[in-house]
């Protein structure tokens, strides 16, 4: 019996990026449209599992794809995301998100990816509250859920790598939030200019800066079966505070939303953070 397999997709359904039209469009958006720059990318481990934690924004959030592309280019490693399980019930949608590396957001999947496959997994602990927040909360991190991401990292025995993105909230600026029976709904400048459908897709060309912070590891010699909620919440808050401070710092450094040259000065100023440009 043969031992070889000829599968071009991995067992999670992720397709390795290639040279097709879709990838060319993503490349254009990343390089020319959003002009993404990275700092501190060396904090992302070259080997082994790690949980990448980012701030979430945008009507059609591009942050996940940007982090995925950047890490693939800079570190040569794929990044998986944990997605809302409702996506996978839908025809075509589930297939599409799987192909770009999103897997069902189930603790078992996260642990298997991190511990068994030793992969990088990206999560946005703010969830849907990140993109749907009033203008007064702009660049203010929302609550980090129940600290599930901390438990996932503890159980898998991997570090948490915080990633802070600036510019993503400016791709679809929120003017206000309309309450609806199914949850709040953001009204964006894009929707007013282009209509509700095109406005959900069209993004303004804000310059996006990404900064990776040093990995966070806790000294846990033994992880109990039931981790006290207080530990999870404390640690989640620790990560959130760290990211909020860095987010504020990056906003102070920023010259402008669309033509930000602040990163040009960074090699001298950012000290041990390091910098890598894409």
């Amino acid at each position: 019996m043969s031992n070889s397999t000829t599968q071009q997709v991995d067992r999670w359904g992720r397709v390795t990026p290639g040279e097709d039209l879709r990838d060319s469009i993503f490349d254009f958006m990343y390089d020319k449209y959003f002009r993404v720059t990275w700092e501190g990318v060396e904090h992302i481990p070259k080997r082994g599992g790690a949980l990448l934690v980012g701030n979430h924004a945008g009507m059609l959030p591009v942050d996940g794809k940007i982090v995925q592309m950047g890490v693939e280019r800079e570190r040569g490693r794929p990044v998986y995301g944990l997605g809302f399980k409702g996506f996978f019930d839908l025809p075509f949608v589930g297939r599409l998100v799987e192909r770009v590396g999103v897997v069902v957001g189930h603790p078992d999947n996260a642990e298997r990816l991190l511990r068994e496959d030793e992969q990088l997994v990206m999560v946005f602990p703010e969830g849907s509250k990140g993109p749907v927040k009033p203008p007064s909360e702009r660049y203010k991190l929302q609550r980090f859920g129940r600290g599930g991401f901390v438990e996932t990292a503890m159980r898998a025995g991997v570090p948490i790598v915080p990633i802070v993105l600036v510019g993503t909230e400016d791709t679809t600026p929120v003017l206000g939030v309309l309450p609806s029976p199914n949850g709040d709904f953001p009204v964006t400048v894009n929707a007013l200019m282009f209509g509700p459908i095109l406005g959900a897709v069209a993004q303004f060309p804000a310059k996006i800066r990404v900064r990776v912070l040093p990995p966070i590891e806790w000294d846990d010699s033994h992880v109990p079966k039931h981790i006290p909620l207080s530990i999870l919440m404390d640690r989640a808050q620790e990560v959130r505070s760290l990211m909020q401070s860095e987010l504020d710092r990056m906003l102070d450094e920023r010259d402008g939303i669309y033509f930000d040259s602040s990163n040009e000065k960074l090699p001298e100023e950012s000290g041990d953070r390091g910098r890598s440009r894409s």
């Binding site: 067992r11 999670w12 399980k85 409702g86 996506f87 996978f88 019930d89 839908l90 589930g94 897997v103 069902v104 189930h106 078992d108 999947n109 298997r112």
Partner: peptide, 10 residues
Amino acid sequence: IDGGRPLLDR
């Protein structure tokens, strides 16, 4: 069996 299941059932 539904859309929210993990990749591998234990």
